Structure formats: C-alpha cells, structure tokens
Amino acid sequence: MARACARLFAHDDGRRLRAHLHALTLARHLGPDASDAALRHLEGQRALVAHLDRLIDEGRGSPAL
C-alpha cells in the first residue's frame, strides 16, 4: 500500500491533491466557538491525511517521522 501511495502522489495531479488535502485539514484552524463535533471531525480528517503522508514517505523509502 505504501508503494502505491508513493506512486499515486508522485505525479503533478497527486501533488496537487496532496497540497489541497493539507490546505483543507492541516492548515485549517477552527475558532474558539467551534463545536466539539466540528473539532472531532477535523481531527479525524487530519489523522487520515497524516496517515497518507506516512504511507507516501514509507513508499518512497523515507523514514517515518
């Protein structure tokens, strides 16, 4: 699975998609009035993107952080 992710995200479209996912999740911040449900939802999204990042790094032969 790691090699497949590395291949998928190695091309221009994959890099654009990865940057988009980062912008939607990792670079997004909710305000102090955010509900518990909204916070949990965003954290779940962030966990999924972080998992993809780890798979990509593993597939490229980079050590996972």
Rank of each mutant, 00 (worst) to 15 (best):
L55Q: 06
R18E: 08
A19P: 00
H22S: 14
D53G: 14
A10Y: 00
D36K: 04
H29I: 07
D33I: 02
R18F: 15
L39N: 11
D13S: 15
R40D: 05
D53H: 07
L55K: 04
L26D: 11
H11V: 11
T25A: 15
A23V: 06
R54T: 12
G31V: 02
H20A: 12
P63Q: 00
D13T: 14
F9T: 03
I56M: 09
L24M: 07
A34K: 02
L42C: 10
D36E: 03
E58K: 03
A37G: 10
H51M: 07
L52N: 01
H22R: 13
E43G: 10
Q45F: 07
R18M: 14
L48E: 02
H22Y: 05
A2V: 03
R28S: 08
R3G: 07
A37D: 06
L24G: 15
A19S: 15
R40S: 04
L42G: 09
A10C: 13
D12I: 10
L42F: 03
S62Q: 01
Q45P: 01
L42R: 06
A2E: 04
A4Q: 02
H11N: 13
R16L: 07
M1P: 14
R3H: 07
M1F: 12
D53Q: 04
R3W: 05
A2G: 09
S62F: 03
A37P: 09
C5R: 08
L8A: 15
L42K: 06
F9N: 11
A34S: 10
A37Y: 04
D13K: 12
A6V: 04
L26S: 15
C5V: 06
D13I: 11
D13M: 07
E43A: 09
T25S: 15
G31E: 00
R60C: 12
L8V: 13
H41N: 05
L65E: 03
D36P: 07
L26H: 13
A47N: 08
L52A: 14
A27F: 06
H29K: 13
L30G: 14
P32H: 09
A64D: 01
A23T: 11
A50K: 11
R46S: 09
H29S: 14
R28Q: 05
L30I: 05
A38I: 02
P63C: 04
L21Q: 07
R7V: 13
D13R: 13
R28K: 06
L21H: 00
A38H: 01
A34E: 02
H22C: 15
R7W: 04
A64N: 01
R60M: 03
C5E: 06
T25F: 11
M1N: 09
A47D: 02
A64I: 05
D33N: 12
L65R: 05
I56K: 03
A34R: 01
A64H: 04
G31K: 01
M1T: 08
L8I: 08
E58Y: 03
R16K: 12
E43I: 00
A38Q: 10
V49H: 12
E43C: 08
R7D: 10
A34H: 02
A50P: 01
H11P: 00
D12L: 13
R40K: 09
D57R: 05
L65A: 08
A23Q: 09
S62A: 07
R16H: 04
L30N: 10
A38R: 08
R60V: 00
H11C: 12
D53T: 10
D33R: 12
G44K: 04
D33S: 14
A27C: 15
L39V: 02
L26A: 15
P32Y: 03
L30F: 06
R28C: 13
A37N: 06
